[in-house]
Amino acid sequence: MTPRRSRALAGPLALLVAAAGLFSAPAAAQSAADVAVAREIFIEGSEFAKQGRWEQARERYERSLAIKRAPITLYSLGVAQQQTGQLVEALESFRAFLVEPSAPATREYERLARHAVEDLERQVSALELRLSPGDVAGLVVKLDGGVVPAAALDRPRPLNPGNHTLSVSAPGYREVRRSVAAAPGSRVLVVLSLEREAASAAAGPRALTVSAPVGAASSPAPDDAPGRVVPIALIAGGLTTVAAGAAIGLLGVASASDAPTRDGEAADAARAQALAGDIIAGAGLVAAGAGVLVLLLDRGAASAPDRQAPPRAALGPRGLTLRF
């Protein structure tokens, strides 16, 4: 126990004598039974204080004070809080004791309480919190799990020396947690920048929108679809026919190379096969070319302002027919 802290201590016998007078007259709103219970719990607390069991003494003083508010209980609670490291709470208990009306039974403790207040004001730390942005709606600040009132956020907050946990949260922002170490009598400045949550997380699932690159060809309108089916089919079929004819021609060339003589049935059959491949490939090229031509005509007609309708292509028994 430090010399400064011992100033506020008083002998248990003196406290019991003071309690006997202050607990004798019940308040108007309290029954005699309540006052008797409060006195009994206070005496238990004083016995624990005499033994140096300050945690138990503090708990008894708190219970007694909850039943009946008495100046001597405030003073005794302040001593127990000071001994258990609750300096902020002890400071307020001594201040509350000093604002009570002076009475002969407690007058000797007033000087000790003033010295205790002076010592505690030098030992208590302070926390100053600065937030950016500072005008966030729904802001919740917690210190060691307890909510700090919004009206008190712009003032330094008294803090017991030691380690503390600070958390800041708000709708649409990520929660921020910090560990704060406060030395006795220090002023701790904590600056926090609140970050918004990701747009996808805040807004929820979004529909996937796929857009074509600038300059890409758009899908044909329903009215233009029939006119483009035939030329596209001609181009695709023509290219397929070219590939087939080329394959047949290559087989014919290979067969001619394998023939035992340049004349004879085997050589004649191979040359005929190569010729057939050339003919098929040529027909495919013609069909593909016709498809390209029709597409070009369709585009030219669609871009001409004086045409009522683009030419249409139809494939009938007599071949490819263009209709204007």
Rank of each mutant, 00 (worst) to 15 (best):
V253Q: 05
A301L: 09
V140Q: 13
G172Y: 04
F94S: 01
G300L: 13
A281Y: 02
I67D: 04
E195T: 06
G162V: 02
E128H: 09
L295P: 00
L194W: 12
K50L: 14
G215N: 15
V99C: 01
A33L: 06
R228A: 00
R318E: 15
L16C: 08
R271N: 10
I72D: 06
S24P: 01
V88H: 04
A57N: 08
G252F: 05
A314K: 06
L87K: 08
R323F: 03
V148W: 14
V88K: 03
D154S: 14
P305E: 07
G238R: 02
L120C: 05
V176K: 15
G45N: 10
A254L: 12
V79A: 09
S46C: 10
A36K: 03
V99H: 05
L159N: 11
G227Q: 03
L120N: 05
P184I: 11
G319D: 08
G78N: 00
F48R: 13
G138D: 04
R39A: 07
Q273L: 14
R111Y: 08
A313R: 01
A212E: 06
L208V: 15
S76R: 02
Q81P: 00
E175C: 04
D135Q: 12
A247P: 10
A18T: 11
G138K: 03
L208E: 10
G45A: 09
V147M: 07
E100Q: 15
W54C: 04
T209M: 14
D298T: 05
A49Y: 06
V79Q: 04
V190G: 09
P133M: 01
P231T: 03
V242Y: 01
L98F: 09
E197L: 13
A36C: 00
V79R: 02
V148M: 10
R39H: 11
R323M: 07
A70H: 00
A90W: 01
Q123S: 08
